[in-house]
Computed example of a mutant assay.
Amino acid sequence: MLTATLRSNRCPSHPGALLDDIIPATGKTKAQIAELLGISRQHFYDIIGERKPVSPAVAARLGKAFGDGAAVWLRMQAAYDAWHVEREVDVSNIPTIRAA
């Protein structure tokens, strides 16, 4: 029988944290990258500041710009979101359904 185990107590990094780490190596400013991505500077700053998630559309743009594909950015965002929701949503009254 498989059982789910509680993930690490360490929160996965928000994709914005990675962006903040890799931007200096590009030689471009945050504003320049936002323009290249076709998103507003404020939206980009909100992602870097971990105030907004990376949407699928932004993930596609980031994946193209950095050459790693949208899935990398989406997986990072999903891991971050899942870690938080597993701690914030009360599911104690929902039974686990098992195959008969």
Rank of each mutant, 00 (worst) to 15 (best):
A82L: 11
T29P: 05
I39E: 09
V72N: 04
S92L: 05
R98L: 15
A4D: 07
G49S: 05
E35T: 12
L37M: 06
L6R: 12
A100T: 09
K52T: 09
I22R: 01
V89D: 11
G67Y: 02
D68T: 12
E86Y: 10
T5P: 03
L18E: 00
I23K: 00
T3G: 13
R10D: 13
A65S: 00
G63K: 06
Y80R: 09
S40C: 02
Q42V: 09
V72M: 02
L36K: 05
L62K: 04
H43E: 14
Q42G: 07
A79T: 13
H43V: 14
A25Y: 09
R41K: 13
I33R: 00
M1E: 14
G27R: 05
T96V: 15
H14E: 00
T26P: 00
G69R: 00
Y45E: 13
H14D: 02
F44S: 01
T26I: 10
D21G: 10
E86D: 14
G63R: 08
A60T: 11
N9L: 14
A99R: 14
L36F: 02
V91K: 05
R87F: 01
L2H: 12
P24S: 02
I23T: 03
L2N: 13
I97Y: 05
T5L: 12
G67S: 06
A25F: 12
A70G: 05
R61V: 04
I23H: 05
A57N: 03
G38H: 00
G69Y: 01
A100F: 04
I97V: 15
A4N: 06
A78V: 10
I47F: 08
A100R: 10
I94S: 07
Q77V: 09
G67D: 03
A79P: 14
A70R: 02
L2I: 15
I23E: 06
L36A: 11
A79V: 07
V91G: 01
A31F: 01
S13P: 10
F44I: 06
L37I: 06
Q77G: 02
A79W: 02
I33S: 07
R10H: 11
G38I: 02
R75C: 13
R98W: 11
